[in-house]
């Protein structure tokens, strides 16, 4: 019991406190533009968390987490425009990417595709979606009443409304709070999954697939389920992103796919909080680098990745916790 308190419920309680503090503090102090930006960061943090779970614990290096992110955003936008109400669009924005992850994962894992090809295939699928969405500019690419808009995306992506009441649109500060709650829930769910027997088997499969199989576990199923959960979380992230900006093909782009992986590496592979911190720090940094207009933010991001891999090969969070532990001992 004590161990469960320390490794699962304790961190969840801390995360709840942090979420409360952020929801209390930020909307009151930030200006509108900064608050919307903060919401974007939080949506990205959910995306980082999804890969932290799939890669860091499931051992599945998915280069295409952006595919589920984009699908979530587009599903939300298309459904919200068609329904005129976002109540049904939100669950769809989670279910459609999850369903897509389930289908893609089925072929990947039940086809026993090896790790390297898994990375290549997930990346390729993302780029195919990117190309496809980019080429939907003509009017025939309309789902119901929602034109996909090709390169321009869907600028009229509607913001969330109060559940069941389409006239009561949520304000940016309310959407921010919702996004933080979403991030917290994803974290809590991930923690609880990892504390369960299912989660332990997922980690065991990452550690040694053959051994898990020889102990009688169908590793394909465990990988498929964790991959699908990751797809669902990435879809949720896309939904929040669509709320702050609007959906466009860049959601599927190579730069997003790459960035997510950088967040996880810099933050610390094999942790949940690390990639979230890495994501938010790097977003702030690249945003700031962008405003300087001296240097390309992508160049900065690349430099940080190289430095992190050289100096902090374990990532930010594990390095810091390692230092603290060493400090305790001496």
């Amino acid at each position: 019991m004590n161990a469960a308190l320390k490794t699962t419920w304790g961190p969840i309680a801390l995360a709840a406190l942090a979420a409360l503090a952020v929801c209390w503090f930020l909307p009151a102090t930030l200006e509108l533009f900064a608050l919307i930006n903060a919401t974007v960061f939080v949506s990205m943090a959910i995306l980082a968390l999804s890969l932290a779970l799939v890669w860091g614990y499931g051992g599945i290096l998915c280069f295409g987490q952006a595919a589920f992110f984009g699908l979530g955003g587009y599903t939300y936008a298309v459904a919200a425009i068609n329904f005129g109400d976002t109540t049904g669009a939100v669950p769809l924005a989670i279910l459609v990417p999850a369903g897509f992850a389930l289908l893609l994962g089925y072929f990947l894992f039940y086809g026993r595709i090896s790790d390297v090809y898994l990375g290549v295939i997930t990346l390729t699928v993302t780029l195919i979606l990117f190309k496809f969405i980019n080429s939907t500019a003509s009017d025939i690419w309309t789902i119901g009443t929602a034109p996909l808009g090709g390169f321009n995306g869907i600028p009229m992506t509607p913001p969330l409304n109060f559940p069941g009441d389409m006239t009561a649109m949520l304000m940016p500060d309310q959407i921010f709070v919702l996004a933080v709650i979403g991030l917290f829930l994803c974290y809590a769910i991930a923690k609880l999954i990892l504390a369960s027997h299912f989660g332990r088997v997922v980690v065991a499969v990452k550690e040694n697939e053959l051994r898990a199989e020889l102990l009688g576990y169908d590793v394909r199923l465990y990988k498929l389920i964790i991959f699908t959960v990751g797809g669902a979380m990435a879809g949720l992230a896309g939904m929040f992103f669509a709320n702050c900006v609007f959906v466009s093909p860049t959601m599927f782009s190579l730069s997003y796919s790459g960035q997510i992986i950088i967040w996880v590496i810099v933050g610390g592979l094999g942790t949940l909080v690390g990639p979230v911190i890495g994501c938010i720090l790097l977003q702030m940094l690249t945003n700031w680098a962008g405003t300087l207009e001296v240097i390309d933010p992508n160049l900065v991001l690349g430099a940080i990745l190289v430095i992190a891999v050289l100096l902090l090969p374990k990532g930010l969070l594990p390095t810091i916790t390692g230092l603290i532990r060493r400090g305790d001992r001496s």
């Binding site: 065991a204 550690e207 199989e213």
Partner: peptide, 24 residues
């Protein structure tokens, strides 16, 4: 049959090179 299905019938299998969970 797949290995996991054979294992589920009550067969314990030890490989030549120790196959263990290093991180656990």
């Amino acid at each position: 049959w797949d290995s996991f299905a054979i294992a589920r019938l009550g067969v314990g299998i030890k490989t030549q090179v120790p196959s263990v969970f290093d991180g656990l």
